[in-house]
Simulated scan of single mutants.
Amino acid sequence: MSNETSSSTNSIETSLTRTIKLILFAIPLGPSLLCSLHIMICIARKHKLRHRTNHVMICIIIVDFIELTYDLAAITMPYLKTGRIYNLSLCLYWVTGNYALQGISAWLMAWASIDRYLLIFYHRLLSTFTRCDLPLIIIHGFVVLWYVIVTITHPCTENWFDETRFLCGGPCFNINSIIATTDWILLVLIPAMIIIIVNLLLLVRILVQKLWLRSSFKNRRLQWRKTANLLIQLLGITIVFLITQVPLAILCLVQIFLVPDFLIDVSHIWLYYMPYFIYITTPFAYIVTTKECRTRTFRQQQHRIYPIHR
Rank of each mutant, 00 (worst) to 15 (best):
E4T: 08
E292C: 01
V56D: 09
G169C: 03
P135I: 02
V208G: 03
R296I: 15
D183P: 00
M109Y: 14
R214H: 12
R221C: 02
I287E: 14
I280E: 07
L200Y: 10
L202R: 04
T14F: 09
F217D: 15
L118E: 14
L68T: 00
V188T: 13
R165E: 15
L253F: 12
L136P: 00
Y99F: 10
T151K: 10
I152F: 14
V288S: 07
I250T: 03
A26G: 01
L258V: 14
T282I: 14
T19S: 09
Q301T: 09
V150Q: 10
Q245I: 01
L251Y: 01
D261Y: 02
L145G: 07
I23A: 15
L29G: 02
C156V: 11
M57V: 11
P275Y: 05
D133Q: 06
I179D: 04
L101Q: 13
L22P: 04
K81F: 01
L24P: 02
I237S: 10
L222C: 03
R84Y: 12
D265Q: 12
C42V: 02
T182I: 12
H303G: 07
Q302C: 07
T14H: 13
L49C: 03
I58A: 14
T96P: 05
I305R: 12
S89A: 11
I206V: 08
K226A: 03
F166W: 09
T128M: 13
M57F: 10
L37D: 06
Y86E: 14
I43Y: 11
K291L: 06
T295R: 14
I61C: 13
C168E: 05
Q300M: 15
P247S: 11
L202H: 08
Y147F: 15
G141V: 08
A249P: 04
A110I: 01
M40R: 14
I194G: 06
H309C: 01
A249Q: 00
Y79R: 02
L167H: 01
L72W: 08
R221E: 03
I43C: 12
L213N: 05
L33K: 08
V240C: 06
T181F: 05
I179K: 00
L68W: 00
V144K: 10
M40L: 15
L134T: 11
A285G: 09
S7M: 04
Y276W: 12
A180L: 02
N3D: 07
P78R: 01
G141I: 06
L242Q: 04
L248Y: 06
H309L: 02
I243L: 10
I58M: 13
L88F: 04
P155Q: 13
P275R: 07
L231R: 05
L49K: 02
Q255G: 05
T69E: 09
D115W: 08
I269K: 10
L24T: 07
A73D: 05
T290M: 05
I137F: 11
P275L: 10
N3L: 07
I137E: 00
I104D: 06
A106L: 09
L202C: 07
G169K: 08
L33A: 06
W94Q: 15
N176W: 08
K226G: 04
S32R: 13
L222E: 12
V148C: 15
I196E: 06
T128D: 09
Q301C: 11
T130A: 13
I137W: 14
S6Y: 15
Y276G: 00
I152G: 08
N54F: 07
I243H: 00
N3I: 04
F166E: 04
E4L: 06
P275C: 09
F257Q: 00
R18F: 01
I243E: 03
D261S: 08
Y286D: 01
